[in-house]
């Protein structure tokens, strides 16, 4: 699969790295040259040091053949535009946007973004579920806000989420509960990885029987953090 990641912050960096490790073709766009160089130095020559919002550079990055575009910059408007351009201009089958302002979720969904990652909402959800704070691992601060991205489970109860998402949501919960048990971070990485593996297995299993039979779970895990996204192939 060819995944175009826009935004070379912590989220973008780990996302790209994990995707490469699991054998996908990834290109990462980061407009800050210093940051781009740093990532290229660490992962390799998959970084384009250009602004992913510019149509020209999106085209150069191969948006027209991308299977997934993930817009994970710190600005909602950028993420929205990237996903919309990808979706409508480059016919990318699947777009994922990071939403910082939970109020924008509605709009993004409405405007055709396939998946949303909302760290704010996640933290809110965690707090609501009374998860002890010390179990939350710092992942990255989100530009311009005081919020931190710690984990990315898909929350239950979102009435507009699709079936495929729902199918992976249960497994995502699994992931969280497993990794939550581990305390030290190096171990957490390993265990979260195995958790992701099992999440993948489970979500495939749990998705059977749902209408989107072909649903395959894309499990992404960073340092102590597991994302589990269902994607329809």
């Amino acid at each position: 699969m060819f995944v175009l990641v826009v935004g070379g912050g912590k989220v973008g960096y780990y996302l790209a790295k994990e995707l490469v490790e699991s054998g996908h073709e990834v290109v990462l766009m980061e407009k800050d040259h210093a940051r781009a160089d740093q990532i290229a130095d660490e992962i390799g020559s998959i970084v384009i040091a250009h602004d992913g919002c510019e149509g020209k550079y999106l085209a150069e990055a191969g948006a027209n053949r991308a299977d997934i575009v993930a817009a994970v910059t710190g600005d909602d408007e950028d993420n929205l535009v990237i996903c919309q351009m990808a979706k409508h201009h480059f016919d990318v089958p699947r777009t994922i946007a990071r939403v910082n302002n939970p109020k924008n979720e509605e709009l993004f969904k409405h405007l055709g973004v396939d998946e949303l990652i909302s760290p704010t909402r996640m933290i809110l959800g965690s707090i609501e579920q009374d998860i002890p704070v010390h179990e939350l691992l710092h992942l990255g601060s989100l530009g311009g806000s005081d919020l931190e991205l710690i984990e990315a489970p898909l929350l239950p109860g979102s009435s507009r989420s699709r079936r495929a998402v729902r199918s992976s949501r249960s497994s995502a919960r699994d992931v969280r509960s497993r990794s939550g048990r581990t305390r030290s971070s190096p171990k957490a990485t390993r265990s979260s990885r195995s958790a992701a593996r099992s999440a993948r297995r489970r979500s495939t299993a749990s998705s059977s029987g749902t209408p989107s039979r072909s649903a395959d779970a894309l499990a992404v895990c960073g340092r102590g953090v597991a994302f589990a996204l269902a994607e329809r192939t």
């Binding site: 490469v20 992962i43 020559s45």
Partner: peptide, 8 residues
């Protein structure tokens, strides 16, 4: 594959 993770 190359030496760096993503170099191909």
């Amino acid at each position: 594959k190359g030496r760096k993770l993503a170099d191909r």
